[in-house]
Design a protein around this nucleic acid. Structure first.
Lengths: 131, 131
DNA sequence: TCTCATGGTATAAATTTTGTACCATATATA
DNA sequence: TATATATGGTACAAAATTTATACCATGAGA
């Protein structure tokens, strides 16, 4: 796991006052904004499963996503520095997407989410059943 | 921090094969789906700052959100079991929202996000400057 | 000649989100 | 008496986002 900037206990105390960086910015909100929208957070999670991955594979991994939205999400995440795009001008041409260091550093976040998911597996399963 | 269901090292190994629960479900995706949309993840983060909080306060905390969307997000998060709503039939009436246990258990997730935010503060600041 | 594979784009339709106005009630103020 | 304030919203049309569908260029292989 990566270095911690504040212990979890400090975090629990400080969150009530609002957490800000030295510059007065929120360290939590930027990511939440970057991953807004229907697909981006799931796309980032899928990308964690590969070193490099292609458009077609990602499309299979995210059932229901359209070319338009996959393209848009990839472009915006690239713009935000979370993924990188490498184009191979062969025939047929192909493109490889991969996480940047900044993107790969999201692994601890998905790890925390996974633990939450295991912890609440039953409730999640129930609400899925009952709708 | 809460009990862990898999060490971080195991997580890094297993994520490449895809992580599933005993029932074959993904422990990560449900939360990502619950927090889809423009406001829900930020709303949950704001709610972490309070024991109980009212509609009007949340509206101040999320500049730009409309009554319609705040209402919709609160209803859906309540439906998903992340928050609870308590209505006081006084005059003027008021309503108190709070996190359920399941909602409060998201704190480690926001802690991980915070650490990511501190770690990449400079890059985030730069991209904010340059647009 | 026809099909397949690649990683998309173009366009209109459907859905989600926003902007604006408004509701009921009691109290406090002018 | 009339008006403003506070609460937590709802109703409706407009704007923005997302989806569905069709299509593009290229070369290889049947």
């Amino acid at each position: 796991m990566k270095s911690e900037y504040m212990s979890y206990d400090e975090f629990l105390i400080n969150i009530k006052k609002g957490i800000v960086t030295e510059d007065g910015n929120c360290p939590v909100t930027p990511l939440l904004i970057m991953l807004q929208g229907r697909w981006k957070s799931r796309l980032m999670y899928e990308m964690c499963m590969y070193e490099t991955v292609r458009f077609g594979q990602l499309k299979k991994d995210l059932p229901g996503i359209t070319n338009t939205m996959l393209t848009k999400a990839l472009r915006e995440l690239e713009q935000d520095g979370l993924i990188s795009r490498k184009q191979f001008n062969e025939i047929p041409p192909h493109v490889e997407y991969s996480l940047t260091e900044m993107g790969r550093d999201l692994l601890p976040v998905f790890y925390a989410i996974m633990n939450w998911g295991y912890q609440h597996e039953e409730e999640l399963y129930r609400s899925k059943e009952t709708g």
